[in-house]
Amino acid sequence: MDAVLDPRLFVGVFVTLFVIMDPPGTVPIFLALTSSMTSKQRKAAALTAVFVALGVIVVFALFGQSILNYLHVSLPALQASGGLLLLLIAMELLTGKAEDPEPNARGGNVALVPLGTPLLAGPGAIVSIMVFVQNADGAADYVAIFAGLVAVCVCLWLAMRFANVIHRVLGESGTTLVTRIAGLLLAAIAVQMIADAVTAFVKAA
């Protein structure tokens, strides 16, 4: 009997997206963007942002390949460009060169932009999920990919839902440390993506 879910792929999707979307790293950004909101508004913004990010990523997972075919762009090319982009994001995480978002009092708007996209559903997450879908083989793989994505979105929601508590526990130094570690892991993933793309180019030549 075939497995309903590929556990190895699930873990791979979860770890990759967790590092890219960085739930702990969203805590200080979320707090800054929602500083003028009430507790109830902040909870609603967290839920809205997660659903927006999930929707954007699922759309690209389903139709991203069709867009690539229309533009005559190969998956290795997308993978290489995505790896370079992830490397730039990793350098920002490692060096702390992230923009400090200004508080916004316009309620749910910040949950859509910039929180839902591009901060959560950014280019790195979109490229990664497209690569996973492209390499999927069978229903068990698709279930594992979707389950991994949903699990990361749940982690994002929990991080933002309990942002005040997490920020107090980690402190400024703890949050910074987690962000730097995430940057290091993301850099390794980016280099691997570029290496896989080069290998695919060589085999296709």
Rank of each mutant, 00 (worst) to 15 (best):
V131Q: 11
G183N: 09
A125T: 07
I89A: 15
E172L: 08
S128V: 05
L177W: 08
G138E: 07
L115S: 05
V27Y: 04
G148R: 09
D2T: 13
P24H: 01
V150E: 02
G171P: 02
V150R: 01
Y70N: 05
N164A: 09
L184I: 14
A136V: 09
L54F: 15
A197Q: 03
E102F: 05
I20A: 07
C153G: 01
V165R: 13
G108K: 11
G96P: 12
R168G: 00
A200E: 13
S35E: 15
V150S: 06
A136R: 06
V152P: 08
F63C: 04
V127P: 09
L5H: 04
A3Q: 13
L93W: 08
P118Q: 06
I126S: 06
G171C: 07
V165I: 13
I145N: 07
T117K: 02
V198E: 01
A140D: 11
Q65A: 14
N109Q: 13
C153A: 13
M160W: 09
I20F: 09
R106V: 07
I166S: 08
A61M: 15
L33A: 05
L184P: 15
A140K: 08
A136H: 04
F132M: 07
T179P: 00
N69R: 12
V4S: 07
T199H: 14
G12E: 11
I189R: 03
G116L: 05
A144S: 10
M37D: 13
A136Y: 01
D141S: 15
V191Y: 07
H72W: 02
G107E: 11
F30C: 04
G83S: 02
D100P: 00
I29Y: 09
F132I: 03
V127H: 06
A49E: 08
W157Y: 15
G148D: 06
R180V: 09
Q41I: 06
K203Y: 02
F30R: 05
Y70C: 04
A98F: 14
I67T: 10
A77G: 14
L17W: 12
G82R: 04
L17P: 01
V56S: 03
S35V: 05
S128L: 03
Q192D: 13
G96V: 03
I181T: 10
A159Q: 09
V27P: 13
L47E: 10
E92A: 13
P76R: 12
V27K: 04
P118W: 08
A77P: 08
G25K: 01
G124L: 01
S36I: 10
A151K: 05
F14E: 11
V13K: 08
L87E: 01
